[in-house]
Design a protein around this nucleic acid. Structure first.
Length: 257
DNA sequence: ATGCCGTGGAAACCACGA
């Protein structure tokens, strides 16, 4: 079973790229972030035609998350991260697929830091950690995947010293990520590739992709049951080189059945 | 050293992204 995550950076603007990638790699489940479209503008028919049933939580212009499945419609559990009814950003959607709880998330960017946006990022992280605790307590198979907007270690940044004060790399968020993982999650990429330089994002500027000036910010966290089933994982790096592509590349894991 | 590019939406610019 192959599960993927992809920050598409505009689901309609990137539709040809998304469909080409789905057709080429045929993931069983695909989690999408940054739809940048309201619910009614989600390209449901094109995705159905590609062989996927989907649930989504959109928003005009910003954010937006979706879960696609080739094996029946994802059974939606919730479409917001618990803990703040005032938070109207569409950044989380969770569903059960094939007995696995899949949480698809788009963690706030947080820049500029410090400031209100950074505070929101830390608050959101806290809610995610609280929710992750509750999921682990249920002792069921869970995958929390998406754009975490965090480089966990220096290995995950092309030039760590340049990013020291950035909201994606500040000590507070690295600590938050470390504490989340320490609850009992497995960072899939780092479990199978502990020492490799692996990136999931390259800026549009300065030929970042060509220079491999990248960041690893899209992650798969696996609960114990799923961690044992992890067969392989990787980044569909070449997708970042396509025309009219997102600044992120898709990340995937392969599980034993 | 830097939103230098790119998206969406509204309005021929702005907010936002990492």
């Amino acid at each position: 079973m192959r599960i993927a995550t992809y920050n598409v950076n505009g689901v309609n603007g990137r539709l040809p790229v998304l469909l080409r990638w789905l057709n080429e790699t045929q993931p069983d489940v695909a989690c999408l972030q940054e739809l940048k479209a309201p619910d009614e503008k989600f390209p449901e028919q094109a995705i159905l035609d590609a062989g996927y049933q989907a649930i989504w939580h959109g928003q005009k212009s910003w954010n937006g998350v979706a879960i696609l499945s080739r094996h029946g419609k994802p059974h939606e559990i919730c479409r917001a991260l618990p803990g703040d009814p005032e938070d109207i950003h569409s950044r989380y959607i969770e569903a059960k697929i094939d007995g696995i709880v899949v949480g698809c998330l788009y963690l706030p960017n947080g820049n500029p830091a410090p400031g209100p946006k950074f505070d929101y990022k830390l608050a959101w992280f806290k809610r995610l950690t609280d929710h992750a605790k509750e999921l682990l307590a249920k002792d069921i198979p869970v995958i929390l995947t998406g754009d975490y907007n965090v480089m966990p270690t220096e290995l995950d940044v092309y030039k760590p010293e340049k990013w020291a004060d950035d909201a994606l790399f500040r000590p507070e968020v690295r600590t938050a990520f470390k504490e989340l993982v320490a609850l009992g999650w497995t960072d899939a990429i780092r479990k199978l590739h502990p020492d490799e330089k692996i990136y999931t994002f390259w800026d549009y500027f300065r030929n970042a992709y060509e220079r491999n000036a990248g960041l690893r910010i899209d992650h798969f966290l696996l609960s114990t049951h799923i961690g044992k089933r992890l067969k392989s994982c990787g980044v569909d790096r070449h997708v970042r080189g396509w025309e009219k592509t997102s600044d992120h590349a898709p990340v995937w894991i392969e599980l034993t059945d």
